[in-house]
Write a protein that binds this DNA or RNA. Structure first.
Length: 497
RNA sequence: GGCGGGGUAGCCAAGUGGUAAGGCAGGGCUCUGCAAAAGCCUCAUCCGUCGGUUCGAUUCCGACCCUCGCCUCCA
């Protein structure tokens, strides 16, 4: 079965076939952040979605080149640079670094290329010159250069490939009135914005005069540079369909005369607590806000990946708490498998059980069906339950445990949870001596500090002496310190909450 | 006004022309000295409302109600 994806260009689910004649290399471009502030949870949904697409392609055997731009020059950025009396580089550098930290915390693979707009001014100018030469762009009285939709259409090109546009029926909107630029037509958009006093030191020389790039042109210039004039996949949030992506198509196809992108993928927005996220409603979260509440990037990633990417998703704090429990179930099962396998998790060379083969087959089918991630989780949790049943009945062989672990590694290549593959700390109840090789904790890879270990030993002594009052008091104390104890038939388990 | 998504259990969320995956929460049970953020089991006669097509619809068609998004800052 082949990978199928919903292509906005055709408004249908299509089989994915790379442009590469060898059907191996895939070029993928995702509209990245505008680094004027910390990215919010809505932005993250899109980037986690892009990561899922990339991982799915890699899982399917493709050699992916993932490009994500950094928009580091733009109206809001310039405004804040001016207000904070700082430099463009200093201002954007801070938010770019924060963005990359967050991306990592969410378990996203780092894009292979992260081109900055300000470092591609030459490419941008060259592209604009091409459009001017082809007669689809013009310089206005204010010194700015605009793209002419009318001229573009006059060349037989199609403006409005991603959605039905009826420019006459569309409301001009209040925003157009506030647009002081001198365009020939309201639909036209800026390729190069002439320098104005408020821009301060943010400007570059160009054949059209001093100024800076328009918003859309950077993506055309950088994606073409990195991936060629025609490439496989371009993704972004659904709000970018128009005007951003539509304009990208117009600029790129207007300049090259070739089809720009084969598959356009758009991720839906999210609601927070059932409402559109807004600062005034108090439901506006950055990743940092959620980490400060004690949640982990992994939990946020899981929650963002519970719903299909083309459906509006309702992100809630309750849901995030639930994500914690759900992940624990998977982690718990993996830990038990590790105890069974009782080996370092390196290369596992055992035959794969049919149970695992079936699960992996269902997993793959769901994933390839336009990334039906909800169904993927269904497969994962049913598989976990089956394993738990076998573990509880003690009918699982060592090799089966290893097979399951190898299967999980394969699945996690797509899910990106990177759960700990170390066993829980387990102590022999009688001797109080930890068996060698099993010394990490379930959640996170944190070693228990001496104080916690000492309390654990004291509790073991108390239990040996049947002093259950003291034993329970220590258990409560440990819990208050963030460590939970489980007495299992095989020994005592210590877990970080 | 134009265009496009949605309404499935307490919450989140898949799915199908033949009678509803999964997760969280809840309930029951098991293990346990007692516990457990441990495991198992259980949990929608029903899929916004009303009509229609059909042997049969939550799934197809029509109308209506509600809701969300885009329409030149936007993930």
């Amino acid at each position: 079965m082949a990978l199928k994806l919903f292509n906005t260009l055709t408004r249908s689910v299509q089989e994915f076939t790379p442009l590469d004649p060898q059907k191996k290399k895939v070029g993928m471009y995702c509209c990245g952040p505008t680094v004027y502030d910390f990215a919010h949870i809505g932005n993250w949904r899109t980037f986690v979605f892009a990561d899922l697409v990339r991982r799915t392609l890699e899982f399917s055997g493709y050699d992916v080149t993932h490009v994500m731009n950094i928009t580091d020059v733009e109206d809001k950025i310039i405004k804040r640079v001016r207000e904070q009396k700082t430099t463009l580089r200093e201002f954007t550098g801070k938010f770019e670094a924060a963005f990359l930290d967050d991306l990592k915390a969410l378990g996203c693979r780092e894009p292979h290329q992260k081109p900055r707009a300000t470092e591609h001014i030459a490419e941008i100018i060259a592209l604009i010159e091409k459009l001017v030469a082809r007669g689809v762009a013009y310089k206005a009285a204010d010194g700015s250069v605009y793209f002419s939709i009318e001229k573009y259409r006059g060349c037989g090109c199609c403006y409005g490939q991603l959605l039905k546009l009826n420019l006459d029926e569309m409301r001009a909107g209040e925003r157009v009135a506030s647009d002081e630029y001198e365009k020939e037509s309201v639909a036209d958009f800026a390729l190069w914005k002439a320098r104005v006093p408020d821009d301060g030191e943010v400007f570059w020389p160009s054949p059209f005069g001093e100024g800076r790039p328009g918003w859309h042109i950077e993506c055309s210039a950088m994606s073409i540079k990195a991936l060629g004039e025609t490439f496989d996949l371009h993704l972004g949030g659904e709000d970018l369909k128009f005007p951003h992506h539509e304009d990208e198509i117009a600029q790129s196809e207007g300049a090259t005369g070739k089809p720009f992108v084969k598959y356009w993928l758009h991720g839906a927005h999210l609601l927070v607590e059932g409402k559109k996220m807004s600062k005034s409603l108090g439901n506006f979260f950055t990743l940092r806000d959620l980490l400060a509440k004690g949640f982990t990037g992994r939990e946020v990633r899981y929650l963002l990946l519970t719903a299909h990417y083309r459906e509006t998703f309702n992100f809630t704090l309750d849901g995030l708490a639930g994500a914690k429990s759900a992940l624990s179930r998977i982690q718990e099962c993996l830990s038990k498998l590790l105890e069974f396998w009782d080996n370092e998790i390196g290369e596992i060379n055992v035959p794969i059980d049919s149970r695992d083969e079936i699960a992996l087959k269902k997993f793959t089918e769901a994933l390839q069906d336009d990334l039906n991630i909800s169904q993927v989780w269904g497969v994962v949790f049913e598989w976990i339950r089956e394993l738990n049943r076998s573990l509880a009945q003690e009918i699982l062989s060592k090799n089966s445990a290893a097979s399951a672990l190898a299967t999980w590694k394969r699945m996690d290549g797509v899910l990106g949870l990177s759960l700990s593959l170390k066993s829980a700390l387990r102590m022999n109840e009688v001797t109080g001596v930890a068996p060698s090789g099993i010394l990490a904790e379930v959640r996170g890879d944190e070693e228990a500090p001496p104080e916690i270990r000492s309390l654990l030993m004291q509790r073991i002594e108390a239990r040996k002496a049947k002093d259950f009052k003291r034993s329970d008091a220590i258990r409560d104390e440990l819990k208050a310190k963030g460590w939970v104890i489980e007495d299992t038939p095989k020994g005592i388990k210590l877990k970080k909450i």
